[in-house]
Simulated scan of single mutants.
Amino acid sequence: MAQKFENKVVIVTGGTSGIGLATAKAFADEGASVFVTGRRQAALDAAVKTIGGRVTGVQGDMGKLADIDRLYDAVQQKHGHIDVVFANAGGGEFAALGSITEEHYQSTFDSNVKGVLFTVQKALPLMRDGGSIVLTSSTTSISGTPAFSVYSATKAAIRSFARNWILDLKDRHIRVNAISPGVTDTAGLNELFGGGDQAQGTKDYLAGLIPAGRVGQPEEIAKAVLFLASDDASFVNGVELFVDGGQVQI
Rank of each mutant, 00 (worst) to 15 (best):
E103W: 01
V120L: 08
F148W: 15
T145A: 11
N237L: 05
Q121G: 06
T119K: 06
V236S: 11
G38I: 03
K8F: 08
D110W: 02
D185L: 15
S17R: 14
V48I: 10
K114D: 01
G52A: 01
N88Y: 07
Q200M: 13
D168M: 08
D129A: 13
L124K: 07
K64T: 06
Q41D: 07
L189M: 14
G201L: 02
Q247T: 13
Q3A: 15
N112V: 00
T154K: 05
Q121I: 09
G208C: 07
T140I: 08
Q76W: 06
K78T: 11
I51D: 00
V215M: 08
A123S: 14
G15M: 14
Q121H: 12
T23Y: 09
L228S: 05
L117P: 00
G63T: 02
P125G: 07
D168A: 15
D73T: 14
G31W: 04
R128H: 10
A43P: 02
R175A: 12
V113E: 05
I51H: 01
S141P: 08
K64H: 09
G15V: 14
L241D: 02
D232C: 07
Q106C: 04
T108F: 06
G245N: 08
G38R: 08
R54Y: 00
I51L: 00
K8G: 03
G80A: 09
V48Q: 04
G14Y: 01
Q247I: 14
Q200R: 15
K64Y: 06
F35G: 08
N190W: 15
P146T: 03
G196E: 01
F5T: 11
R54A: 11
T186K: 14
L192Y: 13
N177P: 09
S17Y: 01
T136L: 09
Q41G: 01
S137A: 14
G14S: 00
G63L: 04
F118W: 10
S143V: 13
K203N: 08
Q41T: 09
F148R: 12
T202M: 13
P181R: 15
P211M: 10
T50W: 02
V239R: 08
R39C: 04
D61T: 04
G216P: 12
